[in-house]
Design a binder for these strands. Sequence first.
DNA 1: ACGATATGAATGAATG
DNA 2: CATTCATTCATATCGT
Lengths: 213, 213
Amino acid sequence: MENQQQVQDSGNKSNSSSYLCRQSSTRWTPTSDQIRILKELYYNNGIRSPTADQIQRIAARLRHYGKIEGKNVFYWFQNHKARERQKKRFTPAPQPPPPVTTAATILPSPFSDHHHHYNHMPYFYKHQQLKLHPTHHMLPSEGGSSSSSQAFIPIGCGYGSISMEKSFMECSISPGENRVPGELHNFGSWVGVDSYSFDKIKPDHVAPELEDD
Amino acid sequence: MENQQQVQDSGNKSNSSSYLCRQSSTRWTPTSDQIRILKELYYNNGIRSPTADQIQRIAARLRHYGKIEGKNVFYWFQNHKARERQKKRFTPAPQPPPPVTTAATILPSPFSDHHHHYNHMPYFYKHQQLKLHPTHHMLPSEGGSSSSSQAFIPIGCGYGSISMEKSFMECSISPGENRVPGELHNFGSWVGVDSYSFDKIKPDHVAPELEDD
DNA sequence: ACGATATGAATGAATG
DNA sequence: CATTCATTCATATCGT
């Protein structure tokens, strides 16, 4: 690893000049003690994904060693776990699993990993299966040729496994309505939110600003 | 935060990160305009969990600003909302705002106006499940009030406040480099980890002093 | 000063 | 709706 010492001087560092105003001018720089404790929890106590409750406690505890917030603890565990796994993934195939030489053990999976039946397939015919409710209610503007069964869209390869119902979350169509980027600030109206119900306005808290970072 | 890169191919921002520059459009990379509009809808219109129809409309609208699919919109709202809440969960106590209860400023509020729910739209929104396995199917047979025809639900209620969430996950006060002597190595006990051994009994439970420092 | 690497932060995509 | 994972971006730190 790398040896790091705490240099987290009070809050600010004379950061460089003129750069993007990314809010992360100062990211949390954990103290040695903080790291030590975090690792303790990780390795000795087996904490991998602390619950919100634990995060609070951990942060409160580590606060004695320097500035720290809940999200720092959260991210730390997330990253630590992820990187550990990542390392392990690209590391040579650990042990050859007991070769149960059955004819069916032909797992063409690139990873010989075990418990993670989690497939993050690079090929994307898998996700696209978000099914919406059967209210494939086309937009009034683009209605029309929906007479036949627009059953499936042969994305990629129609492996007969995917039962794409009918409405994907997306119907890549919108010919008629050409609302080109015209900057129409009437949000909400086109989504179905009505803006005439102002009588129910709840004086919610304030609104800092609305920057689109 | 969001960085903007307009489209999917070409010019992969050539980050300093070396190898593996095949960021070939696997995941949706929202453009600035898309983000801006999404936040508008979220904060200005109070849309938290858009219905299927809304998702379609939003996606259609946002498509003018770049490639986008319905599921992207769906996930965006899901994530945005979830993270807003999660952040809150990490943060211990929002420091109960002690209102200036001066003897003269007593406000006899009949209702302890406290927490409102904006418009948690009725759950005919349930259909937004991802259908990956042949589980049940919500058949549109029954004319139940379950779905569809959500013509114009007053979701949104556009309370003209833009409650932004740029506040961070926590606003912790922090002592500088405070070293507490007497570190006890009983990690985990204060975090609430069970040693998952012994018994399920813990004589002392977790008594994290949770001191506010 | 760079360049590489480690790592904090953010977020899209899923799953339960 | 909560939790988790993967991936990417941003930056701190160190080596040469």
